[in-house]
């Protein structure tokens, strides 16, 4: 069973004074997330990340499409016992103290009265807020609020956790701590779906990432592929333009400057290409593996369609 399965989910917002025109914010999103996976939902500002999360949480309704969470329809109230949600830039009832807020949310999520107090105590120390006492949330710093936000998302011990930009607006220390917290949830075996545009966070935490831009899913990638030591392409530079003919079909986009040739070769073809070049007495200048970083992937996926080079 998939933890989350999103099927052709779309959302159009009515815009303009008369709300007559519809503008798509999310265009037919299909996505599946496996149980126990940490999944990064990447996209630039206005991509549709928050829209997707609000749809999944039942805060707004889809124009079309549907989703299941843990095998049940996402609008089924009972499934919500098993999910947790941290909204972007969260704000909480500022007249409450942290324990009061968590108690309220635990009650709403159906945590029995008997276990609430103990769990809230543990949770506050887990997020590093054990010393806040009964201070009202209006006196909390942004970093403290973010931790309260994570605490409320997990107070009922959910299986699937949705976080909307959990690190935004935090200082480097706060970001590091939130990262550690997410890592510990991951170690607990939770399924985590989080949106971000901080690529290093995604790279550090996620198993897979999806890139969304202008409401469209542009690609899904496995993070390990981006950091693996084996590069799938290698840049080769040699002296001896005459040898190019023999390896032409294996070299992508060769550039010739005088007698020097620069081109990329699929790593699988590398040995063969190098052998041929030696046989032809070409002088190798450099052989450099090309690592594709998450950043390059992100940039290539979010580049405007129109500006993309025409592939012949």
């Amino acid at each position: 069973m998939h933890a989350i399965e999103i099927r052709a989910l779309s959302k159009d917002y009515p815009v303009g004074f008369w709300k007559r025109t519809l503008r798509p914010a999310l265009k037919s999103l299909d996505l599946t997330i496996e149980a126990g996976e940490t999944f990064g939902f990447l996209g630039p500002n206005g991509a549709g990340k928050t829209t997707t999360l609000k749809l999944l949480m039942g805060i707004i309704f889809p124009s079309s499409g549907s989703a299941t969470i843990l095998g049940k329809d996402f609008l089924d109230p009972e499934i919500k016992r098993k999910i947790g949600f941290l909204p972007e830039q969260p704000y909480f009832y500022d007249y409450l103290s942290a324990p009061e807020l968590l108690d309220y949310y635990a009650q709403l999520s159906g945590v029995p009265a008997g276990v609430r107090k103990q769990r809230i105590g543990e949770l506050l120390s887990r997020v590093g807020l054990s010393d806040v006492g009964n201070k009202q949330l209006r006196k909390f710093s942004k970093g403290m609020l973010q931790r309260v936000g994570i605490a409320q998302a997990i107070v009922h011990n959910p299986d699937v956790i949705f976080l909307d930009e959990p690190m935004s607006g935090l200082d480097p220390v706060g970001r590091h701590e939130v990262r550690e917290l997410i890592q510990s949830l991951k170690d607990d075996g939770k399924t985590i779906f989080f949106s971000t545009h901080i690529l290093s966070d995604a790279e550090a935490l996620c198993d897979r990432v999806a890139v969304i831009h202008k409401g469209e899913l542009r690609g899904v990638g496995v993070v390990n592929d981006f950091r693996s030591s084996v590069a799938d392409k290698t840049e080769v530079i040699w002296l001896g333009a005459g040898a190019l003919r023999a390896v032409e079909e294996s070299v992508v986009e060769p550039h010739i400057t005088g007698d020097t040739v620069r081109g990329t070769v699929q790593s699988a073809d590398l040995d063969r290409v190098l052998d041929i070049l030696r046989q032809r007495h070409a002088r190798l200048i450099s052989v450099t593996p090309i690592h594709r970083t998450l950043e390059e992937y992100f940039l290539s996926k979010t580049r405007e369609r129109e500006k993309e080079p025409v592939q012949l």
Partner: peptide
């Protein structure tokens, strides 16, 4: 947006 954290629960 406090409602977001309410409606994401079985409320």
């Amino acid at each position: 947006k406090t409602l977001y954290t309410i409606l994401s629960r079985p409320v």
